[in-house]
Design a protein around this nucleic acid. Structure first.
Lengths: 153, 153
DNA sequence: TTAATCCCTAGTCATTTACTAAGAAATCAT
DNA sequence: ATGATTTCTTAGTAAATGACTAGGGATTAA
């Protein structure tokens, strides 16, 4: 039940972009340095975020990335689900249609539980935006703390 | 963010035991047959459940397993955490003391989010007992449905 | 005494994770 | 125009994890 580095690094990168919102394109190299992430790996994470229309890119020298919308319009849920897939504890709560995994799923007592877990996770992450994170960063930290995000992987 | 088969199979097995609560020891072989799980694998899952005092065993012929407490006193959370470890999206919300992962964790804006996810998951699974599942099974299924749990893995 | 059962450990195969590497395409600055 | 800088894409890989299988010892009812 752990998030992978994809989601965690992606969220860090998006928060970094949020802190630099409105300041033109930010290069992946600079994000990678600030957040201690490999550039090559970060490139693989930013790609789906761009396709999901959460960031936009400017190519060429002095290019980079910026948020595609204001921080208040980008939820943590949108970021995490683009990088991790649905935040569901099982496939059965999420896969519909063609190849339904299980005949009895309509009356499955465990599926009910997994759906509740799914809903509670979704509800949390969809209610938090990058703007909330920025506000949280400004209000909660002591004056002498400059780092906004753990260095941890 | 998926549960592994350990948690899912373990929950199925525990629900099976709950359905047979008060009827003496139930053999792993019979549980495995009903729930379509390999006996060898199930043995590896029941072992930690026994050590966590959620089931007790009777050895020898005609032996088997039974719930160590009434279904109303066994939560889904206890079962899942025994088999999966803490239902946390990251290690950083759960590891304390000796080797703290990160210096800045006290003011980490992403850690706050992971803690909220952790709390919401914990709150859901700790509020559901095996008795709730039994009640759900009895009340919600149509008369012609006999299976309580998906066959799905 | 035998069959059934719990109990424990080791091994294995496939998948996933977390990257590294490398090169093509675009664009700015000179 | 050229070179430096940057995005973009794909392929490969080493380590870890997941999901088992296999086998044998210990215990007990019949």
């Amino acid at each position: 039940m752990k998030l992978s580095t994809r989601g965690r690094y992606g969220l860090k990168a998006m928060f970094d972009l949020a802190m630099n919102y409105g300041e033109g394109p930010i290069s992946l190299t600079s994000i990678a340095e600030r957040q201690y992430i490999s550039v090559n790996y970060l490139e693989q994470l930013i790609s789906p975020l761009r396709k999901a229309n959460l960031v936009k890119s400017v190519r060429g020298a002095q290019g980079g990335y910026m948020l595609a919308k204001p921080p208040s319009e980008i939820t943590v849920g949108a970021i995490l689900t683009t990088l991790e897939g649905p935040l569901a504890p099982t496939d059965c709560v999420v896969e519909y249609g063609e190849d339904e995994l299980c005949d009895h799923s309509r009356y499955c007592v465990t599926k009910v539980i997994y759906e509740k877990i799914y809903e509670s996770i979704t509800s949390v992450v969809n209610s938090i935006t990058l703007q909330h994170m920025l506000d949280d960063y400004e209000s909660n930290r002591p004056a002498d703390v400059v780092d906004a995000i753990c260095v941890c992987k």
